[in-house]
C-alpha cells in the first residue's frame, strides 16, 4: 500500500503527541507499519509542537513540503504555519480557537484576526474542515479533550487508513480510565463535524 502521511501541529500542552501515539498504536492494531517523529526538549509548554506520522512502507518519519495527506492543526495560526506541507491532495482540519503567544502582548509579533487566517486557508486549501474544537471539548465536558475532538474529525476523513474501532480501542489503552467517557464523547462530536 502507498504511504499515508499525517502532519500534526499545535502548541505545547494541547495533546498533539498523545493523539499521534493513539493513531500509531491503532495502525499497529490494523497490522500496518507506522513511523512517527516527535519533538521534545526546550519547550515544556507554550512552544510549537509538531509531529509527523507515516503509515505504510516508510523508513523516515519526516514529511516533506507539499507531501502530507492530512494536516491537523490544533491552533489556527499553527495550521497556517504548516501550509507548506499542503498540496492539492491534502485534507486539512483546523481548530478555530486561538492561543495568543506572549510575544504579541510584548509587541514583538502580531496575531491577525482568526477570520483572516480562516479565509486565507479557505482560499488555498482544497479540502478544509474548520472546527471549533475548544467549544466541542467543553461541550463534551472538558477542554482537555480537545485533542480527541480532532482525532474524531481525522478518523472521519476520506482515505484515513485506520478504522474507528481500532482508534477507540487505542484510546482506551492510552487515556486515564476516568476520562474515557468525556474523551469518547469528544471523539464522536469531532467525528460528526466531518462525517456530517
Amino acid at each position: 500500500m502507498s504511504v499515508y502521511k499525517i502532519h500534526l501541529t499545535g502548541v505545547g500542552g494541547q495533546g498533539t503527541i498523545k493523539m499521534s501515539t493513539i493513531i500509531g498504536e491503532a495502525a499497529i492494531k490494523r497490522g500496518l507499519n507506522v513511523v512517527m517523529s516527535e519533538v521534545h526538549g526546550m519547550a515544556q509548554r507554550g512552544g510549537v509542537v509538531t509531529t509527523d506520522l507515516k503509515i505504510g512502507d516508510a523508513h523516515s518519519p519526516l514529511i516533506e513540503n507539499g507531501d502530507a495527506d492530512l494536516v491537523i492543526g490544533f491552533e489556527p495560526a499553527e495550521t497556517l504555519r504548516s501550509l507548506p506541507k499542503v498540496s492539492e491532495k491534502t485534507f486539512v482540519i483546523t481548530n478555530s480557537a486561538r492561543i495568543v503567544p506572549f510575544t504579541v502582548g510584548l509587541g514583538l509579533s502580531e496575531y491577525p484576526p482568526v477570520e483572516q487566517i480562516i479565509s486565507e486557508l479557505k482560499a488555498k486549501v482544497k479540502h478544509l474542515f474548520v472546527i471549533n474544537a475548544e467549544e466541542l471539548a467543553n461541550k463534551a465536558g472538558n477542554i482537555m479533550s480537545l485533542n480527541m475532538v480532532l482525532l474524531g474529525a481525522a478518523t472521519a476523513i476520506p482515505h484515513f487508513p485506520i478504522g474507528k474501532d481500532e482508534i477507540i480501542q487505542a484510546m482506551k489503552e492510552n487515556l486515564p480510565p476516568k476520562t474515557i467517557e468525556v474523551n469518547l464523547k469528544a471523539f464522536e462530536l469531532g467525528f460528526k463535524e466531518v462525517s456530517g
Partner: peptide
C-alpha cells in the same frame, strides 16, 4: 520544481517560554 504554498498573513512567533 514543486510549488510550495506559503502563508501570507502574519504568523505570531511562539518561542518556548518560562511556564
Amino acid at each position: 520544481a514543486k510549488e510550495i504554498l506559503k502563508p501570507e498573513s502574519a504568523i505570531p512567533s511562539r518561542p518556548p517560554v518560562l511556564c
